[in-house]
Design a protein around this nucleic acid. Sequence first.
RNA 1: GGGCCUGUAGCCUAGCCUGGAAGGGCGUCUGGCUUCUAACCAGAAGAUCCAGGGUUCGAAUCCCUGCAGGCCCGCCA
Length: 559
Amino acid sequence: MSQIVIDIVEEILKKISTITKKLDWPDLPIDLNSPIGDFAVVCFPAAKTLKKNPAEIASEIALEIENIDQVLSAETEKGYCNITIDWNEIVTNVIKEIDHKSYAKTIEKPDRILIEHTSANPTGPFHMGRARNPIIGDSIARLLEYYGHEVATEYYVNDTGRQAATLAFGLSNYETKNEKKVDHELVDAYRIASKLLEEDEIVRKQIYQKMEDIEGGNSETLREVKNSAKRMLEGMEISLKRLGAEANNYFHESDLIANGKVSEVIEALKDSKICKEEDGAYYLDLEGENIAGRNQKFFFTRKNGLSLYTTRDIAYHLYKFKKYDKALNVLGEDHRLQSKLLGIALRELNSKEPIGLFYSFVNLPGGKMSTRAGRVIYLDDIMEKIVELAKHKLDETDLSEIKKNELAEDIGIGSLRYNVLKVQAEKGFTFNMEDALNLQGDSAPFAMYSHARAAAIIRNYSKDMPEVSINGKLSNSEIKLLRTLAKWPGTVQRSVNNLSIHYIPNYAHELAANFNQFYRDCPVIGNENEALRINLVAISKKILKTSLGILGVKAPNQM
RNA sequence: GGGCCUGUAGCCUAGCCUGGAAGGGCGUCUGGCUUCUAACCAGAAGAUCCAGGGUUCGAAUCCCUGCAGGCCCGCCA
């Protein structure tokens, strides 16, 4: 909450406590999320000791509380006494507080944080099953940066292992026609190679040889797989750019083999007290760690001495912690165990551990999406469709064609991001085209539209912003709007603490809804309370824009 | 078999951490644009909060036991 509001609530609570003491009543619990007013005194617990019914207690305490200076009203409802603080007294200061650039940024010491997100295997275009990752990762990065941390983002490119070898094999053996966006074009070669890997013994041998060469550190092969991945990524990057979720840097897994970092990790892990060996393969014995309910052998080399995926991931994380204080990884839920094992291995090497942010998969009605099988809904297609839909809605407006296209892009992409972000990450969902393309209700355009309305009022006002002052009393819509604006710092804090991005779209919707009600009830221009209201519009606009910005959604001045 | 995540109106979802009055949205129905932009607003209908037990004055929320769905349990990535 706004600091001013926190202070005044505390002051009132102290006075209430004095009152209950004077009456010789037990302390009554407070509900800070009461549906009516700013907070509520819960009267049920006192019923037994006072031998009165809760409603009676509520009425009695309400009479006393109403006399407190900072209280505007105390209404009783069943066993609750709902208290509204006197916003009239604090409104000018609260508006100034919200208007200040440090509002909601309560950080003491910034961390240097590396957020790894997306990191999809570069084997084909992004499908909707994978799209959750860049959208969440990018928005978390924006959130932490807004909060005050120094944030960088990185895409870990998986260009070693079987899939990378299969792609490289495919690209070197099959012609492409250059008719489509590059990733959509190249995925055919990957599919053909994948199929042959399963069916053709000779191809299988060639691909497995390539894998050996990769892990063995053959520089020519490493160069080949890296280049194959880069060719595919070229197309994938275009999608990310359009989504507004491109990472700052691409880190190639193959480089960890090429520069010997993986070998260093293997040697270091062999010195661990819990390192054991079986048929020439080395592992950490995780007995006692109680991983997934069983004793776990965590292999970090094969019997031929070569590295495994996680071994390379360990090397990657050692590198991360050389440059950053914290590492945050946005990963699919299938990586949970993997991530836990990585943490243990890093601990063995006296390194810090990354923080994991896991999300559940987006599935299709019949099951999961698969690039290899071609059972996919592409991110590119969804972006295209939703932007087109947004464009269609702009048909009747008298904006220029260029402006319309720009706006349609912002609305379409914004909606897509918003629809993904508003759901708690742990919640799995089945992809629903209708929901994904929805532009009404709890969606990006709703908040964008409120922002555009606010911008229109300020445009029409066409004077310099006046000093905040109040003339008369605040209406209910104004109080409700202020209450929501005052909740912004708490929302940001909670979102940062839990790494839960869905609080932000939830908040943006609430703020926009409250602004729309204010818009309906309170004419601004020409009103006797114009000076206050125009300031209220300005701070609403500011917080709307900020919250949308964290989501990666643009806040247009017109739509 | 074991571990983790999820279960809230026809559908999607918030609230669960920190117990106190079940919020939104889609869809359905009714009403509102000569007044700062109707992608909006007002109203109606719709919920055994997966089930059962426990703790509590009070449980969607905490604890136990189940059930259902997802993910994982490889010298693959």
